[in-house]
Every structure is written in C-alpha cells, then in structure tokens.
C-alpha cells in the first residue's frame, strides 16, 4: 500500500485502506480503537476501508491535530466515535475527496469531557452524494466546540448534512460557521441544531450559516434550529442564503475589477478564511487546489 505523496514526510500516519492497515505512528489500533495522546499531528487516511466503525480516544491533557482524509471509490458508510477526555484538545480537519461519483456516508459522534476543546474543520469538496452527520455532546462543564465547514457543490452533487450540538452540562460553548457555495444543479441540504437542556445555564450556542447560489437550479436549504430549555444562556442562529450580493459586486466593479474578477474575489471571501485555518501547509495547498478544481469544474465563476 502506497502512502499518498503529500503524507510521505509526515511522522504519524495511519492508513486504513480496503483490508489493509498501515500504521506509521506510535499509536496502537486494537479492535478498531485508536488511542491518541500527548501533543501530536496525526494523519488518518481512510480509503475504502472494510471496517465501518472506528473509535478514537483522546487522552486527558492531550493536544492532537487530526487530519482525516477520506478517499472512496466505492459506496461506504463509516461511523466514528470520539471520546475527548478531560482537558484534552482535538483539532479535526476532515477532507472527503472521492474521485468517483459514489455515495459516502459519514457519521461521527464526539463526546467531550470537562474543560475539553474540539475544533472541527470540514472541507466538503467531493463529488457525488455525501451524507454527513456530526453529533457533538458537551457532557461536562467548560467543554467547547467550534465547527467551520466549507461545502462546494457543483454539477449534480448532493450533500445532506446534519449537525447536532447537545449542551449536556452548564457553562459549555458551541459555535458553528457553515460556508456553502452551490452551482449547476447541486443540492446542499443542512439541518443545524443546537440543544441546551434544562439546568445547563451559562452555556453559549451560536450558529452562522451563509450560502451563495450561483446558478438558476442550484439549491441550498438550511434549517437552523435552537432548542433552548434554560433561561440564563446565550444563543443565536442565522442563515443568509442568496445570490452574490449586487451591492458587493457593484463596489468591487467600481474599483475597476471585471465582473469575473469581482465574483471570484467574493467567492474567495467564502473560502479563504477556511483555508487560512488549516495549519498543515501540504494539506492547505491540496485543499486550495481542490477548491480551484471544484470551482472550475462547475464554471462557478
């Protein structure tokens, strides 16, 4: 099994491919459980892996940057469970990059303990049909989650995304930023829910969804939902979906940019803040190329 070129220089690489496993890391995989610890960058490559359920434990006090790269050529349903223990921090970058038009289904459940932090960056730039379900359980005080998601759909791509954030303890915090771009006849359907249950005061639950539809038949549907059963909390949600803002376009044109340049710059305003958050330069470059490819594929500009 070959390690993809962009991962060859990395120290901690785990490849799960078909029926093979290649583990170039210090972490053991036992019964589909990977236990991550200390401070590390871990690259987890999943390509048509035969196992559908994988569990990851992030031990107390650890600080892990996990790059999850999915590359499927067959229909796959994956289910991941993450246990993020006390005072641990997990930064997960997810890139789904199937080369064939196949259906990918990914369900992830994140359980956070006291003082733990989870940062999720999801790049949904693949083709075909994708189902993503991210559930985050903030189970103890001061657990925090932040989700940044960039989703570009072109041709007849279909993305169905569910994001459920459950504030199961007081003084917990969540923030979701979804940036969605849709062209051709692509369909992006989002259900974004924040739950603050009774007694979980001083919690903060925010979500921001923005989307640009660049074609007549593209569709973005976002249902931002808040289920709040406690008074002393902070919660906000919003969804701004539409065509490229005419006033933004006019402003850029008024400085000499052509319409194509202006549109391209406005779209880059959706993608750049996401790209800038990727710390690994190789992965960042790869994502930039993928965005460009995706945009050119769908003649987005």
């Amino acid at each position: 099994m070959k390690i993809p070129k962009y991962l060859q220089d990395k120290i901690s690489v785990i490849l799960l491919n078909e029926k093979e496993e290649l583990n170039q890391s210090k972490y053991e995989i036992t019964d589909n459980l990977i236990t991550l610890h200390s401070i590390d960058n871990v690259y987890l490559f999943i390509g048509d892996y035969h196992q559908s359920k994988i569990e990851l434990d992030i031990l107390s006090g650890s600080n892990i940057q996990l790059y999850m790269i999915f590359k499927s050529s067959k229909q796959r349903d994956y289910e991941f469970k993450f246990n993020i223990h006390e005072s641990a921090q997990l930064d997960v970058f997810t890139d789904i990059r199937n080369i064939e038009k196949v259906k990918v289904s990914l369900k992830r459940i994140f359980n956070l303990e006291k003082d733990s932090t989870l940062n999720i960056n999801n790049a949904l730039l693949n083709i075909g049909e994708t189902i993503l379900f991210d559930e985050v359980n903030l189970n103890n005080e001061f657990a925090e989650v932040s989700i940044d998601q960039l989703n570009i759909g072109s041709y007849n791509d279909v993305f169905k995304v569910n994001q459920d954030i459950k504030h199961n303890a007081k003084s917990t915090k969540s923030q979701i930023n979804n940036s969605l771009i849709c062209n051709s006849t692509a369909k992006l359907k989002y259900s974004v829910s924040g739950y603050i249950f009774k007694g979980n005061e001083l919690s903060v639950c925010d979500q921001d969804n923005k989307g640009i539809i660049l074609s007549e038949f593209g569709e973005i549907e976002v249902e931002p939902k808040l289920f709040i059963d406690e008074y002393n909390v902070e919660a906000s949600h919003g969804a701004a979906i539409g065509q490229i803002d005419e006033e933004q376009l006019y402003y850029l044109l008024s400085r000499g940019l052509s319409e194509m340049q202006a549109r391209s710059l406005i779209i880059s305003g959706y993608t750049k803040p996401f790209i800038n958050k990727i710390q690994d330069e190789d992965i960042k470059l790869m994502v930039e190329r993928q965005i460009l490819k995706k945009i050119n594929e769908g003649d987005i500009v």
Partner: peptide, 18 residues
C-alpha cells in the same frame, strides 16, 4: 459595502492590478 472574507489588501491590490 462590507465584503467579508476579502482582505483590504487583496482587494486594493486586485484593483491596482486592473
């Protein structure tokens, strides 16, 4: 007009390039 995600410098540089 506000244009989120586009830095001031990138914008003016693009305008200057035109």
């Amino acid at each position: 007009t506000e244009v989120p995600g586009v830095t001031n410098f990138d914008f003016v540089k693009a305008a200057k390039q035109t």
